[in-house]
Design a protein around this nucleic acid. Structure first.
Lengths: 355, 355
DNA sequence: CTGAAAGCGCTTACAG
DNA sequence: CTGAAAGCGCTTACAG
């Protein structure tokens, strides 16, 4: 039959290697896959190896996949991770872990649209992917699509509502404890405020607030538990409107100071809110860390750009990605939630209280 | 219909659809691929469609690929683009353009290592990718690997030294003109400085300086050409050590002011250098834009976070990615360099000169 | 218009 | 230890 493919120079096939080496195709297949259990003679092994090299033979992965059902390919399926900047280091972590095993990564963003997600998953399954890393830009609870049941899956930066999956998430509770610990160690006692609650009665206005983000409740839980273990508690909470960005953080702290609060330290729900806090404190002529200490979360580039640099408990995105890929490749599919430590990025924003 | 097959069962094949519809496999193939040129009866067409739906048939892309040589898959091969934050919107642009055609994206970063690049390319070719978007984090000149010659390729955010490729790059020269135009329109004449040259005799210390980045020379060329067209020229250049970051920008402007320069405007090679300029100006009690205007390049999030917000000529990463994908899918492979307009992000950092 | 057949490039159970 | 053969799930030229 005529070959209608748009190929100029045909690629070398296994048959050609067999012919050149003067052995069967089986033998070539065994050699190429390093199957020593077939007890091939050293001579055959060497002849095949040489013939393959001389011809520049590269196995056709598509044919292997059709035969074996394994493609050496996995997919990273997310809402926004691979196409936006925020949590992109997760992709790097996964890619690096997979590179060593010659596994390639399909990158697929659904932008939060379930229909797009379904179409993309079917498209992926049609390509015989070996597994899926299902991930989210923000750490949150998800309902993994039922379609995923037929494929090996690891949840990254999210956990299933049901809980019977393998999931990798940052250890947000421990991060909260760490933040509190830093302040307690510096001598803070009864002037520690938390900045970043949603306003009372508010479930969230922005999209991701309705997606059940875990950062806020878990960070707060860790903070309160750690303080309690030292017999302390938060002096209070400052609510932030809608999004956790700098302008909202600024307004929250402005209100706090206007209301007459005298905080010795602010634990901000993330670095952007902390940046806003810096502005409000600066305008009110409070010095950091002399008059007030500030801690953020995320470990974003922003933290290093502030004056003074912000101490922040950072999201270990690359580690998370690497861990998820490693788990996906392992044989162990026992449902569990793995929590990855969030390291402290020490800045110059924490000092001892003066009041 | 929903797929009611017990999980663990084999996927439905084309043969099963043929059997259920009572037609040949050829007919099913023709219907599934919408080949109306075969003049199938409306009845056959409908029976196949129904059988496929009832069985939940999904074509096996691997088998199609083996047969046709086309995989409906392209690869985005870069140094760092898909695994870091900086130019990530290019991935978004490409993904969005491809989504409409049900084409999936392999994402592959070489981290600048030619050996890794070669291995990854072979791995991709073994999977019968239909094309490659070859891209770089920074706009620069590249020598595309010879291996790429066998595959349809579009260069994204880079151009080949040889020049016989299809390439998509930001229009940096025009961006430089735009920056100069904004200042001239505001009334600036002989106090316009450029901040961001490499020190005299320096080819670059950091890795990417040796990779031949185009941003600096092209932006500068545009600025100078535009000024010349109004009979003006730059008052001078302030060199920046090594990397174009905020601390280096700050030092450059500090030196400039110490040397007694009285700039009416600073055109900074990027936003980070501009942020450094802000600090130096602030420390010297120059007000922006009352005493001095500042313009940056990149359109980074940083620009909006500065006080006052920075006017910046922005890199249209998403547009670039979308355009590259579209070109790759088009039939036209005529070598050319497409330049994409860099839009102005207007801030509040440009005013009329007071001196 | 339809159907039987070849073939894409592999892997692997099986007979020798 | 080796080789012939079946088969993964498609597409398509070809004979009817």
């Amino acid at each position: 039959m005529t070959d209608s493919r748009p190929s100029g120079t045909r690629r070398v096939t296994l048959s050609q290697v067999a012919e050149r080496a003067g052995v069967s195709r089986s033998a070539v297949s065994f050699v190429m896959n390093g199957r020593t259990d077939q007890r091939l003679s050293a001579d055959v092994f060497e002849r095949v190896r040489r013939a393959a090299e001389e011809l520049g033979y590269r196995p056709n992965q598509t044919a292997k996949t059709l035969r074996t059902g394994r493609s050496g390919t996995i997919a990273l399926v997310s809402d926004f991770v691979s196409s936006t900047s925020y949590a992109n280091a997760m992709v790097r972590g996964a890619m690096r872990a997979l590179r060593e095993r010659d596994i390639l990564l399909f990158t697929v963003d659904t932008e939060g649209d379930p229909q797009v997600e379904e179409r993309l998953l079917h498209s992926l399954f049609g390509r015989d992917i070996d597994g899926v890393i299902y991930t989210s830009m923000f750490t949150r609870i998800v309902d993994p699509p039922p379609l995923l049941a037929s494929t090996r899956t690891v949840l990254l930066n999210c956990r299933a509502r049901g809980g019977d999956d393998v999931a990798v998430v940052p250890d947000e509770v421990e991060a909260g404890r760490e933040a509190a610990r830093l302040l307690v160690a510096a001598g803070h006692t009864d002037g520690i405020w938390f900045v970043g609650d949603l306003p009372p009665g508010r479930r969230g206005g922005l999209l991701w607030n309705e997606w059940g983000p875990l950062a806020l409740p878990e960070r707060l839980e860790g903070i309160e538990r750690e303080l309690a273990s030292s017999g302390l508690s938060l002096a209070g909470h400052a609510a932030v409107e809608d999004d956790w960005d700098a302008p909202n953080g600024q307004r929250a702290v402005e209100r706090l100071l206007e209301d007459g609060a005298r905080p010795s330290a602010l634990i901000c729900v993330n670095d952007a809110v902390a940046a806003g806090a810096y502005r409000a404190l600066h305008a009110a002529e409070w010095r950091i860390p002399d008059d007030v200490s500030v801690i953020g979360f995320d470990g974003s580039p922003l933290a290093g750009m502030l004056e003074p640099s912000l101490t922040s408990i950072s999201l270990p995105h690359e580690d998370l990605g690497r861990r998820a890929a490693t788990l996906l490749l392992s044989d162990d599919a026992t449902p569990r939630v793995e929590r990855v430590r969030m390291p402290v990025h020490l800045g110059a924003s924490v000092g001892s209280p003066t009041r």
